[in-house]
């Protein structure tokens, strides 16, 4: 009995994992270009996530950047990355590298909204996001 329960749980886990890999989207994602991928690498290599969040995941010192490119002026974003602020260090990134990071942030922005609206909250407590 114990063995059967264990095996069925693990089997469901495997099926669920495959399912998620194939079906997690509710719309077709914007394709990843080489520039975006390089921007993502810079994001990881400089460890921007230590202070910033994407979809509320990451560190807690700076603002969530999921929708930054549509919330604030892109020129301002580039300027902040270029020279840092009183809290954010200057990473000495070249203009080209900054372009790549911004391309990555724009790509993330297109994937959805970080904040969930009140209207998406179902009476059972879950969210319905379309």
């Amino acid at each position: 009995m114990v063995k059967i329960t264990w095996i069925s749980l693990v089997a469901s886990f495997v099926v669920y994992t495959v399912f998620i890999n194939v079906l997690c989207h509710n719309k077709t994602p914007t394709p990843l270009t080489k520039e975006i991928n390089q921007g993502w690498e810079i994001w990881q290599n400089k460890n921007c996530q230590a202070c910033h969040q994407l979809y509320g995941l990451g560190g807690y010192m700076g603002p969530d950047l999921t929708n930054s490119t549509s919330k604030v002026d892109v020129a301002y974003i580039k300027a902040v990355i270029k020279s840092g602020t009183s809290r954010m260090p200057n990473f000495n990134l070249s203009n080209k590298e900054i372009e790549k990071v911004v391309a990555f942030l724009k790509w993330v922005d297109k994937s959805g909204h970080s904040a969930v609206d009140f209207k998406n909250v179902h009476w059972t407590g879950t969210y319905i996001i379309d």
């Binding site: 264990w6 749980l9 693990v10 469901s12 886990f13 669920y16 998620i20 079906l23 997690c24 989207h25 509710n26 719309k27 979809y55 509320g56 995941l57 994937s111 959805g112 909204h113 970080s114 904040a115 969930v116 879950t126 969210y127 319905i128 996001i129």
Partner: peptide, 23 residues
């Protein structure tokens, strides 16, 4: 064990993925 396998979704509740994952 069940929670190990299936209860990780709270990290990504606000990702606009398919709704069943949240449920």
């Amino acid at each position: 064990f069940t929670n190990l396998l299936f209860n990780w979704g709270h990290h990504i509740y606000n990702l606009p993925t398919n709704n069943w994952m949240r449920h």
